[in-house]
C-alpha cells in the first residue's frame, strides 16, 4: 500500500469524522433544546424550518454575524488561542475511537478509526488533560473575575475527577490487556460488556465523564447564577461558538468513550451467529455503535434537565470521598475477577 493512498484514506477518514462530529453537534444542540422543552412541557424550537430543524444553522449564522468583542483588559493572543485550542482538542480526540470493525474496499482493509494507535487510551487521557488548558487560558486571559473563577473551578474539578476516571479506565485496561481501543472493543464480545462486568467502574467513569465535560450536575465552571457564564463570559461571536462547539464535541467524545470502554463499542452480541453477510453485519455494527452513542447522549441530556447543580463543596466531597474510593474498589474487584478467571 503506497504512502499516498494511506494519506488519502486518512484524509477521507478525518473529513468524514470531523463532519460527523460537526453535524452531530449541531443536532445535539437542537435535541438538547427539544428534550429540555419536552421535559418542561414546552414545544421547543419550531420556527426555523420544519419542526425547527434548521435552528442550529440559524444559530450559527447569528453567531457568525455577531461582533467579536475583546475586553480591554484581556491578553489578546491567549484570549484568541483558547477557543481554538478547545475546539482542536475536542475534534482530535475522536481520532482514536473506532466506530466499527474494519471494512474492505477493493481488498483494502480500512479500519473504521482515524488512527488505530496502540496507546489510544493514553492519547485520550493526554488530550483531555490538555483540554483543561483551553478553559484555564480563557478564564485567565479574559481579565474578568467571573472568567477567572470559572477557569479556576474548572481546573480544580478536572484534576479531581481525572483520578477516578483514570482508575476506572485502569480496570478496563486490566481486562483487555491493551491500550488499543480496537482491542478493548474486541475484548467485550458477546455480553462481556465492561458495564456488566465492572458496574462500579462504569458508574464512576460515567460520573467522571460528566464532570470532565462540564455537564450538569457538574457545570460549576460556567454556573450562570454565580459566574454569569464562567470562563466564556467575555467571549462573543465565533470565539464563543468555538467553545460551544467544543463543549458539545466533548459530549460526543465522552459518549463515544463510554460506548467503547463499557458498552461493547460497535459490538452487537451474537450477531455473527445469525449468519448474515459480512457487509450487512458490518453495517449493522456501525449502526449499533451510533445507536448506543445516541442513547448515551440522550442520557447525558436527560440528566442535565433532571438534576440540579452541585455546590462546590459537594462536588469536591463526591470527587475525593466517594468517586476516588469507589474507583479503587473497582480496581480490587477487577483484580479478583482476573485472578479467578485465570
Amino acid at each position: 500500500m503506497s504512502i499516498w493512498l494511506q494519506i488519502l484514506i486518512s484524509l477521507v477518514q478525518i473529513l468524514f469524522t470531523a463532519s460527523i462530529i460537526l453535524v452531530t453537534v449541531a443536532y445535539l444542540v437542537y435535541f438538547e433544546r427539544k428534550i429540555s422543552a419536552w421535559a418542561q412541557n414546552r414545544i421547543g424550537p419550531n420556527r426555523v424550518g420544519p419542526y425547527g430543524l434548521l435552528q442550529p444553522f440559524a444559530d450559527v449564522l447569528k453567531l457568525f454575524f455577531k461582533e467579536d468583542i475583546v475586553p480591554h483588559a484581556a491578553n489578546k493572543p491567549i484570549h484568541t488561542l483558547a477557543p481554538i485550542l478547545a475546539l482542536v482538542i475536542a475534534l482530535s480526540t475522536f481520532a482514536v475511537i473506532p466506530i466499527g470493525p474494519p471494512i474492505y474496499i477493493f481488498d483494502l482493509k480500512i479500519p473504521l478509526v482515524v488512527a488505530d494507535v496502540n496507546m489510544g487510551i493514553l492519547y485520550i487521557l493526554a488530550l483531555t488533560s490538555v483540554g483543561v488548558y483551553a478553559i484555564t487560558f480563557s478564564g485567565w486571559s479574559s481579565g474578568s473575575k467571573y472568567s477567572l473563577l470559572g477557569g479556576i473551578r474548572s481546573s480544580a474539578q478536572m484534576i479531581s475527577y481525572e483520578i477516578s476516571m483514570g482508575f476506572s479506565i485502569a480496570g478496563v485496561l486490566i481486562f483487555s490487556e491493551s491500550l488499543r481501543p480496537m482491542e478493548i472493543v474486541n475484548s467485550q464480545a458477546g455480553f462481556m460488556w465492561n458495564a456488566f462486568v465492572q458496574p462500579i467502574g462504569f458508574i464512576t467513569f460515567v460520573v467522571a465523564a460528566f464532570a470532565e465535560t462540564n455537564r450538569l450536575p457538574f457545570d460549576l465552571p460556567e454556573a450562570e447564577p454565580e459566574l454569569v457564564g464562567g470562563y466564556h463570559t467575555e467571549y462573543s461571536s465565533m470565539k464563543f461558538a468555538a467553545f460551544f462547539l467544543a463543549e458539545y464535541a466533548n459530549m460526543i467524545i465522552a459518549a463515544g468513550l463510554i460506548v467503547t470502554l463499557y458498552l461493547g463499542g460497535w459490538q452487537i452480541p451474537y450477531i455473527e451467529n445469525l449468519g448474515l453477510s459480512y457487509t450487512l453485519t458490518t453495517s449493522l455494527q456501525i449502526l449499533g455503535f451510533f445507536v448506543k452513542m445516541a442513547a448515551v447522549l440522550f442520557f447525558i441530556i436527560w440528566v442535565r434537565w433532571s438534576l440540579p447543580r452541585f455546590r462546590y463543596d459537594q462536588l469536591m466531597n463526591i470527587g475525593w470521598k466517594v468517586m476516588f474510593p469507589l474507583s479503587l474498589l473497582n480496581l480490587i474487584w477487577v483484580a479478583i475477577l482476573v485472578m479467578l478467571m485465570n
Binding site: W38, A39, N41, R42, I43, W302, V303, S306
Partner: peptide, 24 residues
Amino acid sequence: YLPEIVKGLALTMKNMFKPSFTME
C-alpha cells in the same frame, strides 16, 4: 443517592410524554 437520581430521571421522563402548555 443513586435511587434518588433515578427517581428524578423518572419524573422528567414522565413529563416528556405529557402535552405541552405552550401557546404559540
